[in-house]
Simulated assay, not measured.
Amino acid sequence: MQAVLISDSSGLGVHVLRLPEPQEAGADDVAALVQGALTSAALLGSSPLRGAVRLEAGARRLSLTPLRELREGLANQQLELVQLTSSHPHTHVAAAALGIDSRWPHADDPNGGHGGDGDPAVELVVHQGTLRSGDHLQVAGTVLLLGDVNPGARISAGGHVLVWGRLRGIAHAGCHGDSTARIVALQLRPLQLRIATAVARGPEGVPPQGLAEEARIVNGAIQIDPAQPSWPLSG
């Protein structure tokens, strides 16, 4: 299947780039799909498309590098990627890191199925910005914070707590009783950790260089280890 670039017909000035659903993981090159869509649009149109683009990625997983390359490929054609819709949580994480507005598809959207992982709108909340002393961020599902959690700040989630930065405040994962939840941070030096009903103090000493850490419950107690290569993003 091919990607399709649909010119704006609503008067809003936003074109739609629709990616095909992946047949199997890693089976196709997203950059090549986009280039094919641009070529087809150029052949069909009387003039080149210009302006803003909304990407409909469906259940396709786009990590940081492919999404950045996709945006740069569009920019080379004077097209600006301003928004995407996706039902894959990893794609939302990459979009947030690049500052791209990302949204979950509507339940009645035939092009944006969930891909069998439950309701992602409940599972993952992406928050951009540092939590400062006195702030408390609490979500029903998993939370990914792009920033730091300073001393005196708290972050709580019914699922996992993921901090793309320094965690130095208080973190509570599985706050509704999920003992399988984890706390992951690029620098894990909190004042206090809580997972479900288990409580622990943060580790002392200098954190390891270039190594993210995760806290999870092992044999009834919170244990801190090097983080797994793939962070948990859904239950």
Rank of each mutant, 00 (worst) to 15 (best):
226 P>S: 02
232 P>T: 01
105 P>T: 08
234 S>K: 12
182 R>F: 04
151 P>G: 07
226 P>D: 02
195 I>R: 06
54 R>N: 13
197 T>L: 02
19 L>P: 05
104 W>R: 04
214 E>D: 07
186 L>C: 12
111 N>G: 15
66 P>N: 14
105 P>S: 13
71 R>Y: 08
151 P>T: 06
48 P>G: 07
201 R>Q: 09
146 L>W: 12
185 A>Y: 08
103 R>Y: 11
9 S>L: 10
117 D>V: 15
139 V>Q: 04
86 S>K: 08
213 E>T: 09
105 P>E: 09
65 T>H: 05
214 E>G: 14
158 G>I: 06
88 H>E: 08
117 D>H: 14
171 A>P: 05
16 V>M: 08
24 E>I: 11
211 L>I: 15
216 R>T: 06
12 L>W: 15
211 L>P: 07
31 A>I: 13
4 V>W: 14
138 Q>F: 09
87 S>T: 07
187 Q>P: 04
119 D>C: 11
235 G>V: 14
233 L>V: 03
113 G>Y: 04
161 V>K: 04
109 D>Q: 09
184 V>C: 08
182 R>T: 10
166 R>A: 13
32 A>P: 10
24 E>R: 09
78 Q>S: 13
145 L>F: 01
166 R>C: 00
149 V>T: 09
196 A>V: 06
128 Q>T: 14
167 L>V: 00
143 V>L: 04
218 V>Y: 03
128 Q>R: 15
149 V>Q: 08
209 Q>C: 09
110 P>W: 03
100 I>W: 00
231 W>D: 01
47 S>H: 12
160 H>G: 05
121 A>Y: 12
127 H>Q: 13
8 D>A: 15
139 V>T: 09
83 Q>S: 15
39 T>V: 12
95 A>F: 02
51 G>R: 07
31 A>L: 15
155 I>C: 13
233 L>E: 01
7 S>V: 05
60 R>L: 02
182 R>K: 09
186 L>N: 15
121 A>W: 08
199 V>I: 15
190 P>N: 11
178 D>G: 11
159 G>Q: 01
19 L>H: 07
50 R>Y: 00
217 I>S: 01
228 Q>G: 11
6 I>K: 14
88 H>Q: 10
140 A>K: 10
157 A>D: 00
18 R>Y: 03
189 R>V: 09
112 G>I: 08
151 P>C: 11
61 R>W: 00
